[in-house]
């Protein structure tokens, strides 16, 4: 089974063949608090690694979500279109609360990401 990889911007990445599923980490959701709104990207949009893809609002803050790898937005989590469902990001950030899927351009970019242990170390130092 593929393992969760992380970015320094607190996105998680799960490889599914040539695609990656992306969400925000448990640490990120707990820092943000109640998620109120996700501005989902358009499918078909081309993104470069580290580009801002979309934004996520909690009641008192707004953060951008960055592309962990380059590619094309293949799918978005339709459930999040309904604001009342946005709490799934708080409840199950690594599962039901995924945000979008990218069709990868260059899977070698995954090597630049952190594994769970490295990410945990980073958040503990923050």
């Amino acid at each position: 089974m593929a393992e969760y990889l992380y970015t320094k911007d607190h996105e998680w990445v799960l490889q599914e063949g040539n695609r990656v599923r992306v969400g925000i980490s448990d640490f990120a959701q707990s820092e943000l608090g109640d998620i109120a709104y996700v501005e989902l990207p358009e499918t078909g949009t081309k993104v470069k690694q580290n580009d801002a893809v979309c934004s996520i609002d909690s009641l008192k803050s707004s953060s951008e979500i960055f592309a962990p790898v380059s590619g094309t937005i293949a799918e978005t989590n339709e459930k999040l279109k309904n604001e009342e469902n946005c709490e799934i990001i708080n409840k199950d950030p690594l599962g039901e609360g995924w945000i979008f899927i990218i069709e990868m351009e260059d899977p070698s970019e995954l090597e630049s990401l952190m594994n769970e242990k490295e990410y945990k170390k980073m958040t503990e130092e923050e």
């Binding site: 109120a36 934004s55 009641l59 803050s61 707004s62 951008e64």
Partner: peptide
Amino acid sequence: MTLAAREQHIRRER
């Protein structure tokens, strides 16, 4: 006040 994350004091240039 609600949905303030749309606004300038939080979202800045966005």
